[in-house]
Design a protein around this nucleic acid. Structure first.
Length: 848
RNA sequence: GCCCCGGUGGUGAAAUUGGUAGACACGCAGGACUUAAAAUCCUGUGGCCAGCAAUGGCCGUGCCGGUUCAACUCCGGCCCGGGGCACCA
């Protein structure tokens, strides 16, 4: 019993941007695109269960996206039980014992007793709770994209520009909603051990989470009022005697406090410089820069004075925003020391060559006080022990992953079910869901960096949140909705989600590694913790399909002219490269006339040919309309039929592999299907299949094939599976085997590959019942007769017969034509039909 | 810079995990049927050498070494291509 659904993730930035660019409402453009997708999917003959179809932009769906958001809003992560729990339970604990057992993830320094909690104002209580919630609102540095007018998640920013559109992105402090995914860091890591993802995928997620263990250490700052300490995070406390300087991030809170008067101007200048640099510049050119604060920290073990510097290579957002620099062991620290002439202490003896840092853990420590003589990897624990004993630090685990930005200043997304009263966010009641996305006339940004909803008086009048949720909100739980798509009482009935359980097989691209796949894993864990579903990993097995790439063609226009030079001669001219529609190109040779007719500007184009031909340049790149290298599956389906098309795609190679689309070889697959057909029906003799008993040799072929294709299917090796069928058909042809006993079982195996032909032959064999799922799209079928001999000719799989046979009408024309002559003309290699007759339900007679 | 994944005929690729490398298909060459096409069928097709021939020999999975009776497969070091991360202490 297989759940094979399809639906549309229709909210989000791309859809809205497309709508803005084309001046239409996103709901309209989304709808038009869905209609188009559906037609193409049907054409290829996918057996999706369309009864379960939905769109994430439907109120009936996003009602539950909002509902799940409210559950996350009303939950916190209990670090002792390591799971999400209801926020009321936390409130009950606060009332009993304050927060001593549950420190605030958003404000780690916050401590209060039960009495203090009682005396907090309503607003204060809500503020405190906000710092615990799994979905929370806070002020944070975010990736702000001015051109898109919105905040982007880290994974939506590539090299300092937006993934969508390539616009500049800057850091900006804004009020934002977040998901506290960092609380799930360990669970997300552990979960990877029980799922079947590729090593590459697991590694991407592991690196993104970026768990590291070490220690936080407090260094006293010299000549300061008592109590001023500098807290650093390090994974290598064993190197503490090799610390030659400290570095704090430019945004660090101690910058103002510890900077000496003598260095004030220099520090000020440096901070100005850092501010002037965009995120992009910082990433592009990693210049060594920094400034001395004038202050010194004290090594807690030998009292040595260590200069404190400021540099942008230390990130404010990671660890404590401050590091202890060990130049002999860390490349960046080493370069910094050399650049600013800071003396380097060697603590690893001959492992350090004076030229470059050595990050080894195998050296024996020198110049290291009580750690002298220990191997570094053993010294780590010894050092942490001493640090904890002295009360100047603790063992500490850190993660690179940050909480996920969850709000967008856009229109086309789920509205937050949140009301703001006196600066405090209150959830709407469940009965108020769905909070409908209002109609708007324009999508321009609202005042003060707010979203378009802020322009609506009836919206802001109700104090509703003006941000909307990001594109990944709806896609974070849709697989659960497929299990129970029409339920209007709950997001999915527990019986349904328990029955279907995890997604057994998930097919998707690696681009989702650190986005969708991480977010949906977190949502699943949250719903599991709160008792709404019975499993905490959404996907049991993930397969990364390769991408079919486009093969682009270019023409070369001589600059400033309307003259085009063939690729082989272009070096002799100064030319501009122009993408040309691949449909005008046969291989690499341009159809000059088709090109002239393409656009009016080319009507008068002149060509400089080589050997009488115009040869185009080529490049393999992603398939995109913009690059004119798309192939429309409909055309190939029309020419060869859906079955040939499907089978050829499988035959191309392993599913995981990307490759340029090339129809070279599609004839071979088409020939296979025709050959298979001839085991059942002969061009001249008509029906040839029989009820005879099979021989041992024939049974051997059948059973070898069952085994081979069974194995190939298990291994996802569809390309070799296709080969398996070809071998079987060749062998059966050699044996002249036309026996139903052998052929019928093969049709069952063939069904996923060539469903229409398999189905039609199955029925022709007189078998009861369909081998296809009832939801399968059924195409037109034609049924022709020649001299009263019957020829079923599959139109689903579109096997072209030899058109030499002359066909006669056997029935007068009747009602409900499903074919017109234009279609038949293409079918019949340009020959028009004399008459098209619709008979016997779905059957059609065609006369040419 | 770091981390993954690849590299096999003219082409797409197989090789069930250490056991006859190149299955299957495309392309190409030759042949049969046909007035001729189309369709279909048959034969050959990694390279070099010997032979009229059946056939035989040698070399071959990016490069160089190693382990093994046996290596596309395992180990070490390079080269090239694709993808990911990017100052995370």
């Amino acid at each position: 019993n297989v759940l094979h659904p399809m639906g549309y993730d229709a909210f989000g930035l791309p859809a809205e941007q497309y709508a803005i660019d084309h001046g239409i409402h996103p709901a309209a453009s989304t709808h038009a695109n869905i209609i188009n997708f559906r037609t193409q999917l049907d054409n290829i003959g996918f057996s999706y269960d369309w009864d379960r179809e939905f769109r994430t932009s439907d109120p009936g769906y996003y009602k539950w996206t909002q509902w799940i958001f409210l559950q996350l809003f009303a939950a916190f992560f209990n670090r002792h039980t390591k799971k999400a729990e209801k926020i009321e339970e936390l409130v009950a604990l606060f009332e009993k014992e304050g927060n001593k057992m549950h420190t605030s993830p958003g404000d780690p320094g916050l401590r209060f007793t039960a009495d203090e909690w009682e005396n907090f104002s309503e607003q204060r209580k809500m503020d405190v709770l906000m710092d615990y919630r799994l979905a929370y609102c806070g002020i944070g540095e975010v990736n702000w994209c001015e051109a898109l007018g919105t905040v982007l998640a880290n994974d939506e920013v590539i090299n300092g520009v937006s993934e969508r559109g390539g616009y500049p992105v800057v850091r900006k402090k804004l009020r934002q909603w977040y998901l506290r995914i960092t609380e799930y860091a360990d669970r997300l890591l552990e979960g990877l051990q029980q799922v079947e993802f590729s090593d590459a995928m697991k590694e991407m997620q592991t690196n993104w989470i970026g768990k590291s263990s070490g220690a936080e250490i407090d260094f006293a700052v010299a000549d300061q009022a008592t109590g001023v300490t500098l807290r650093v995070y390090t994974t290598r406390p064993d190197t503490i005697f090799g610390v030659d300087f400290m570095v704090i991030a430019p945004e660090h809170e101690l910058v103002d406090i510890i900077t000496s008067s003598g260095q004030a101007q220099a520090v000020d200048d440096y901070l100005t410089y850092v501010k002037s640099r965009s995120e992009r510049e910082r990433m592009a050119e990693k210049k060594i820069s920094g400034v001395f604060t004038g202050a010194y920290a004290l090594n807690p073990f030998n009292g040595r004075k260590i200069p404190v510097w400021i540099s942008e290579y230390v990130l404010a957002g990671y660890g404590t925003g401050a590091i202890m620099a060990v130049p002999s062991g860390d490349e960046r620290d080493h370069k910094f020391a050399i650049h600013f002439n800071i003396p380097i202490t060697n603590i690893i003896g001959e492992y350090y060559n004076g030229q470059e840092a050595n990050p080894t853990k195998d050296a024996i420590l020198h110049n290291s006080g009580f750690l002298d003589g220990l191997v570094m990897k053993d010294a780590i624990d010894v050092a942490i022990g001493a640090i904890e004993e002295k009360g100047i630090g603790t063992r500490k685990v850190n993660y690179k992953m940050r909480d996920a930005a969850f709000s967008r200043q856009r229109y086309w997304g789920e509205p937050f079910p949140i009301k703001w009263i006196d600066g405090t966010a209150y959830p709407l009641d469940e009965t108020e869901l769905p909070l409908l996305l209002p109609e708007v006339d324009t999508y321009g940004p609202g005042p003060g960096g707010e979203g378009p909803l802020a322009n609506l008086p009836e919206w802001t009048g109700q104090h509703l949140e003006t941000n909307t949720m990001p594109g990944y909100a709806g896609s974070s739980w849709y697989f659960l909705r497929y299990m129970d798509p029409h339920n209007d009482k709950v997001f999915a009935d527990r019986k349904a989600t328990d029955y279907w359980g995890q997604v057994d097989l998930y097919i998707g691209g690696t681009e989702h590694a650190v986005g969708h796949l991480l977010y949906s894993r977190m949502w699943t864990k949250g719903l599991y913790d709160l008792g709404y579903i019975g499993h905490d990993e959404p996907y049991r097995r993930l397969v990364n399909q390769g991408m079919i790439q486009g093969s682009s063609r270019f023409v070369y226009r001589v600059r400033g002219t309307n003259e085009f030079v063939s690729a082989g001669l272009k070096e002799n001219y100064e030319t501009d490269e122009i993408h040309v529609d691949v449909n005008f190109v046969d291989g690499v040779e341009l159809d000059v006339e088709a090109f002239r007719n393409w656009r009016t500007e080319y009507n008068e184009a002149q060509f400089i040919l080589e050997d009488g031909k115009y040869i185009c340049g080529t490049l393999t790149e992603k398939m995109s309309k913009r690059l004119y290298n798309t192939v429309n599956p409909d055309d190939l389906v029309f020419k060869y039929g859906a079955d040939t098309f499907r089978m050829y795609e499988m035959f191309l190679g392993p599913v995981e592999m990307s490759k340029p689309w090339d129809t070279k070889g599609i004839e071979g697959v088409h020939r296979f299907l025709k050959k298979l057909w001839r085991l059942f029906y002969d061009d001249t003799k008509g029906r040839v299949w029989t009820e005879e008993k099979a021989t041992d040799a024939e049974l051997k072929v059948l059973h070898q094939t069952i085994r081979r294709i069974g194995n190939d299917t298990e291994r996802f090796s569809f390309n070799t599976g296709v080969s398996g069928f070809m071998i079987a058909v060749n062998e059966l042809t050699d044996l002249k085997c036309t026996k139903k006993e052998i052929l019928a079982p093969l049709l069952i195996l063939l069904t996923p590959y060539a469903p229409h032909i398999a189905e039609e032959l199955w029925l022709q064999l007189g078998n009861a019942g369909s081998i296809l799922d009832a939801s399968y799209p059924v195409f037109e079928e034609k049924y022709v007769k020649e001299n009263s001999k019957e020829y079923p000719v599959s139109v689903n799989g579109k096997l072209r017969t030899t058109m030499n046979i002359s066909l006669e009408a056997t029935q007068p024309e009747v009602e409900g034509l499903i074919l017109d002559n234009a279609i038949v003309r293409k079918w019949m290699d340009g020959k028009p039909a004399k008459r098209i007759v619709y008979v016997r339900g779905k059957m059609v007679n065609v006369v040419v």
